[in-house]
Design a protein around this nucleic acid. Structure first.
Length: 474
RNA sequence: GCUCCCUUCGUCUAGCGGUCAGGACGUCGCCCUCUCACGGCGAAAACAGGAGUUCGAUUCUCCUAGGGAGCGCCA
């Protein structure tokens, strides 16, 4: 008796896939996966002026990067325009819709009058029951829904609960524009119905639209899908996350070095919780996800938490996978090409070997790349200012003696170099830190790096001795 | 202005009439330590305000304040 669940993600292609859209897509995807159903993808391109192919590409690219796959072919709403008109014809015949010849001026007057009188509904029913013979010549009408005048419209929302509107606050909305193209409100209803959508999960900026669409469903005699309106995401300062106010496309998060798993985990916990659990594998997420558990208040976007999660996933990633992700990212960052040019199989082997120490210290792939720069660097190393301060005549002299001690090591490894360094420190009455820091500066050009014996091992005997020699004199 | 939604530590949240109001991120200490991280331990930190209902409200109801969404021949 229960139909298989069908959800859909329905972005309008007027811009990139922003973070709120990504979360909506994730929720739809999770719910479909949880119930063994399908998630469909529909591009709402009925606004021919603002829809662009570039935006469609960006949305598809964003979804793929996030690994949120959809079922079947992408549906382009505009291609269903004929069907939308057909449905409106039926409504006209049945008397649930009517032609409206009101001019733009008349409409403006109605709007102003409504606002002045403190009414929400503005259309005054001018053409609602008027005889078509009165139609002005040469004016192409819009088709409006003959919405109920009294009573109430109720939505049993999975997230928001029972929401009730008095029908006298709802308008006779336009179904078909005067040029014969369908409006969003009509197209959504017809497409969701035709596509067999059982659950509509979308941003709560559509909550009122649910009421309007319910009236269309009623007029058509169709059953309304289960509704779930999820709260919006706000900026760190609590303001609306608009495109001109810090909203970034998901491609921006990719460029900042975030992992898709981390972003998904962060996003799912925004507005939704499952006890005290913070980390969710994809399977756990699917199993635990549920609509009624979604909170009703807007959440602020917090980069610090995203970073923490990203660091967690980096640390727990497989070394080879991480290296692949890192190399892949190079295509999306400014100086990526130069870095990519330096990576050959030899460097790959070194990066892989250093990865356990590197990933422990990186919260983003960008930091991982930065941390790996000592491997990619060429002699003579450029020494960072902070590191340069450690290069005094005394430490340079010490580096020279370190060079000598290390030169004696034949079987080069982390262990053998560590033994040599500890021995050196002990015989000279020095703490290990006193020799490790100058060594680090000479080897990496920085004051921070993975464990110094790992650095020694990764770089190899020849390179290490050469870098030490570079800093010995002068 | 009108309609609808929201309000627990700085942030994300747990809580579904009786809890010392829990966890996580962040912050601040301490430990570990060759640096930085990681990890471990600990601390500070919240029920927007006011009326009710109740033996008892963070939890239920109403009001106020604040925030958000919508009020298109945009989606």
């Amino acid at each position: 008796m229960t139909r298989p669940v069908v959800t859909r993600f329905a972005p309008s292609p007027t811009g990139f896939l922003h973070i709120g859209g990504a979360r909506t897509a994730l929720f739809n995807w999770l719910y479909a996966k949880k119930l063994g159903g399908k998630m469909l993808l529909r591009i709402e391109d009925t606004d021919r002026e603002r829809s662009t192919q570039a935006a469609i590409d960006a949305i598809l690219d964003g979804l793929k990067w996030l690994e949120l796959d959809w079922d079947g072919d992408v549906v382009y709403q505009f291609s269903n325009a004929a069907r939308h008109r057909e449905v409106v014809e039926q409504m006209l015949e049945r008397g649930t819709a009517y032609r409206c010849y009101a001019s733009a001026e008349e409409l403006t007057q109605m709007r102003e009058a409504a606002r002045a009188e403190g009414r929400t509904r503005f259309y005054n029913g001018l053409w609602r029951d008027r005889d078509p013979s009165e139609a002005p010549a040469g004016v192409k009408p819009t088709i409006r829904l003959k919405a109920p005048l009294t009573g109430e419209t109720v939505i049993e929302d999975q997230v928001q609960g029972r929401v009730v509107w008095q029908n006298d606050n709802l308008d006779d909305l336009v179904l078909l524009r005067s040029d014969g193209t369908p409006t969003y409100m009509l197209a959504v209803v017809v497409d969701d119905h035709d596509m067999g959508v059982t659950h509509v999960i979308r941003g709560d900026d559509h909550l009122i639209n649910a009421a309007r669409q319910k009236q269309i469903y009623d007029a058509l005699g169709w059953e309304i899908p289960v509704m779930a309106h999820i709260p919006l995401i706000h900026g760190p300062d609590g303001s609306k996350l608009s495109k001109r106010h810090g909203a970034l496309g998901v491609d921006a998060y990719r460029s900042m070095g975030y992992l898709p798993v981390a972003l998904r985990n962060y996003l799912v916990r925004l507005g939704w919780g499952h006890g005290d659990q913070e980390i969710f594998s994809t399977d756990e997420m699917i199993a635990a996800f549920d609509l009624p558990a979604i909170g009703r208040s807007a959440a602020r976007f917090d980069f610090a938490k995203l970073e923490n999660l990203n660091g967690h996933y980096i640390r727990h990633s497989n070394d080879q996978t991480l290296l692949d992700s890192l190399e892949n990212l190079l295509r999306y960052i400014p100086n990526g090409a130069q870095i990519a040019a330096k990576i050959d199989d030899n460097k790959r082997a070194q990066l892989l070997r250093a990865m356990p120490g590197l990933k422990e210290r990186a919260k983003t792939l960008l930091e991982l790349i930065d941390g790996a720069s000592f491997i990619l660097a060429e002699r003579p190393l450029t020494i960072e200012p902070k590191a340069r301060a450690l290069l005094t005549p005394e430490t340079r002299q010490l580096i020279g003696r370190l060079h000598g001690a290390l030169q004696a090591v034949e079987a080069w490894s982390g262990e053998s170099t560590e033994a040599a360094m500890r021995g050196f420190a002990e015989t000279n009455g020095l703490k290990l830190g006193a020799v490790a820091q100058p060594l680090r500066v000479a080897l990496t050009g920085r004051t921070t790096s993975p464990g110094i014996f790992d650095v020694l091992a990764v770089l190899g005997r020849e390179e290490c001795l050469a870098r030490l020699a570079d800093q010995t004199s002068e």
